[in-house]
Amino acid sequence: MSAMILAWSLTIAQILLGLAMACAAVRFTIGPRAQDRILGMDTFYINAMLLFLTIGIGSGRTLYFEAALVIGLLGFVATVALAKFLMRGEVIE
């Protein structure tokens, strides 16, 4: 019974997070400017991290936690590098 409730709500949450990722992907595609695309990508990363956490809750294993942490880290580094790129026009100074 309780596993049923949890499974359904996790599935719904995963669909909602997937929709959120789709919204971020649309913003990434239509722009209109580079900063909008980077913002969309940053949101995409955070939503992907949350999606992994919900999958982790569903599986009952802490393996997905590490994956979520790595996704968060990669998103942060990518966004900072791209923001620096926008500011200066070169990634490595």
Binding site: A3, L6, W8, I12, M21, C23, A24, R27
Partner: peptide, 23 residues
């Protein structure tokens, strides 16, 4: 199970509202 379901759904809805705001 009920508490976790509520929290996960609330988090997903809030995140979706944020992403909709992006659009």
């Amino acid at each position: 199970a009920l508490l976790v379901s509520f929290l996960v759904l609330a988090g997903a809805v809030i995140t979706l509202i944020g992403a909709v705001g992006l659009l």
